[in-house]
Structure formats: C-alpha cells, structure tokens
Simulated scan of single mutants.
Amino acid sequence: MNPTDAIRPAHVEVSLGAIAQNYDAIRAHVGTASVMPVVKANAYGHGIVEVARHLMNHGAPCLGVALLEEAVVLRQAGITLPILVFGGVATRQIPQFIAHDLMMAASSIDKLRQIDEAAAAVKTKARVHLKIDTGMERIGVHWYNAEKLLEASLSFINVEVAGIYSHFANSDAADLTSAREQLARFLEVLEFYPKRGLQSPQRHIANSGGILQLPESHLDLVRPGIMLYGVYPSKEVPHTVTLQPALSWKSQVVYFKVVQPGSPVSYGATWQSDHPVRVVTVPVGYGDGYFRALSNRGQVVIRGQRHPIAGRVCMDQFMVNLEWGTAYNGDAVTLIGDGISAQDVADWAGTIPYEVLTNINSRVPRVYV
C-alpha cells in the first residue's frame, strides 16, 4: 500500500537519502573539520527524531539543537550521540542537562559556577561549550571580555570545556566584510590557549553560509543547518557545495467548480475573474503553516503546470485558478517540489526559506523515503 493512502490528502515527503547525500557533500567540502548536523526546529521541518536517527546511523559524530526540550526528545528516542544545545541555559535547567548527558552553552563565570556546583552535587562532570559573541549580540560573552571567562573556566574541576564557539550574523551575504571581522575577533580570542601552552577545545563558528563562502572559518567543526536539507541560506551565496532538496509538500484536489465572472473567491473578496474560470480547492491552509501571505501570489503545480492561488489562503484550504486547464478530484497538487523551491515560496510570501520550512507544523504528516 502507498504510505500516503492512509493519511489526509496532504503530506510532506522527506528524502532521508538526500539528507545523507548532503551530509556527505558537506563533509567532503570541509576536509578535516568535523560536521555537526543541526536538527533544531524539528530538523527544519523535516522531523527531528527520524532525521537524527538516520544521521546517527550514517556516521554523524554529534548533533546540534536550540532547546533543552529538543535534546531530551532525542535522548528519549534513543539518540546516543553527543548533543550541543545552543540556546541560553536557565539555572533550573542545569540538572536536566547533566541528567541527560547534554552539552550546554556557557557565557559567564557565574553560569560556569552554577554548572560546576550542579555537577558536583551528582558527582559527575558537566560538558560545556563556551559561547563568544563576536558581533551577533544575542547570547555569549563579548569577545573583548572573553579572556576572563576562559581563564575562569580552567578552575572549575566539575566542568569539562569541550568546545568554544561563536556564530556568524552575515555569512550568507554577498559582502563578507562583517563575517570576516567576526572571524578575526574569534581567532583573537582563541589565542588564549596557545599563549598558555594549552590545547584548545573544539573550535567552531561556521554555519551554512560560512561553510559555503569562508573556508578559513571551518576550523575544527562546522554546523550545517538549512544546507543539510538541500536549501541554500540565501540567494547571494555561491553553490560551492551541490545540494539535493530533501523535502516536498504535496496535497490533492478535493473540489472542482466553474466560477462565474464577478463572483469573488475566498475571504475578503480580494480576487475575482472577468470571465468564467475553473477553480479547484486544496485542503491546506495557514493552519498547516502555508502562509496567508501567499494569497493571490503563490503558485502550485497540478498536472505538470503551474497555476496561481486565487483569493486568500484560508486556515485549512485555498483555491487555485486553472483558467481552462484540466484537473479532477484526487489529482496531485505540489506546493513545494516539481520545480517550486522553498526559496520560491519564500519570495512569494516575502520571507526566507528557513521560515517556510520550519513553519510546516505537525498537522501535516511526514512520509519518509
């Protein structure tokens, strides 16, 4: 039986093979650097557990997530790889990090002290990555104040500093001046270790943009996010790594009608035709994560042809203008795939492909191939 037959007439198809292929291409591109696949935000909409399990079996050495909850889900699913949680750590969360053997970001001496005390209480060592802010102004100790943090980190006996990292704000831009300045600041901070004759922890700063455009930023480890799923982080970056999109979003025609001239379609009466047209209804809407901003702007593929959305996208459905094209109930409708990329959808909606992918919510079933 076709796996899509038993579910609603809309689903996301995820190619785990494409994700593995992209991982291999990234690994070949970065040489000796390790590759940490980033599976935060439900693996960019692709399914965190299934993607993480496939990457673990494929040989990935570690994983990155944004939240403690994401990491706990992976542990409960049997993922045993080292996992780094990038986000800020609340004091009350520290015991959970330690209990689930997770690496956490540490950006202050006070936080290191709290982590050290929590680890001592259960007679273990906690693993951290020191977070350096080189220009993002999100979390992390400023690069010009980092030496005190690095010095203090050497004194906590229940804390193992497994890594030190920063994050690019503009590595996917055509102008790399800002990214190169951030890298220079990070490298300056890293001089702390050789100056004291110490082995540096694992150093990392390169996200997808850095992987594609700044080979000098690859250091010991890289953190591919959106490119792991076959989507480039912006239209400006060169395609120095060949990627295969891993996700397609499909639905079906569930209703067909002929709409007469002057008869508005959907909420707000924002679209009507001056001649008779064939209109079909598709059972997907902004309640699934298909943006309302695509109203009267987005396109889908039916029977190999692109057709525009007619009227406003509803919570659970939208309509498509076929003009006098042909379609029948049950015909496949492609929202992403068949020549429509996540970047296309982002352009129509006035956003970025990251938001397109992560906005597809759990109401849409995932099918893995």
Rank of each mutant, 00 (worst) to 15 (best):
A43C: 06
M315C: 06
H58I: 10
V279A: 04
L221E: 13
A119P: 09
H142K: 12
W249I: 15
A77Y: 08
Q213I: 02
H218S: 06
N359S: 15
W249P: 00
V30L: 06
F256R: 15
G135L: 03
H100C: 08
F291T: 00
D347Y: 02
S166C: 09
K131I: 05
A52I: 11
R292A: 14
A146G: 02
G298R: 03
Y44I: 04
L150R: 04
L243W: 03
A60Q: 10
P3H: 10
R303V: 00
A43F: 08
A90R: 14
L214Y: 07
D24Q: 13
L81N: 11
Q343R: 01
D347G: 02
V35T: 12
K195S: 04
A105P: 02
R113P: 00
H129M: 11
E151A: 13
V72L: 04
E355H: 15
P233G: 09
Q114M: 13
G350Y: 13
A119L: 02
S34L: 14
N361G: 05
P238N: 13
R303N: 15
A43L: 03
Q21L: 12
V280F: 02
R27S: 12
W249Q: 10
L67H: 13
M56Q: 14
H204D: 00
V241G: 03
K148R: 15
I226G: 06
G285W: 03
G289A: 11
M36P: 00
P238G: 09
Q343P: 00
P95N: 12
I115A: 01
L102Y: 09
D338Y: 04
L84M: 12
Y193W: 14
A41W: 07
F168Y: 14
G325P: 00
T358Q: 13
V282A: 05
V35M: 10
V367S: 04
Y232G: 08
T281R: 12
A106K: 03
V301Q: 07
Y193N: 01
S200V: 03
F168W: 12
P9A: 08
R292F: 07
V356T: 04
L228A: 08
V72Y: 01
A20M: 07
D274W: 07
K257M: 13
N170V: 05
Q305K: 15
G339C: 07
P353H: 06
Q199G: 01
G262M: 05
A99D: 11
I83W: 05
V189K: 04
Y23E: 10
I302W: 08
G230N: 10
V128Q: 09
Y193M: 01
Y328F: 10
D331M: 00
D220S: 12
S251W: 00
I48W: 00
D133C: 01
L81V: 07
Y229D: 01
V122P: 06
K111L: 15
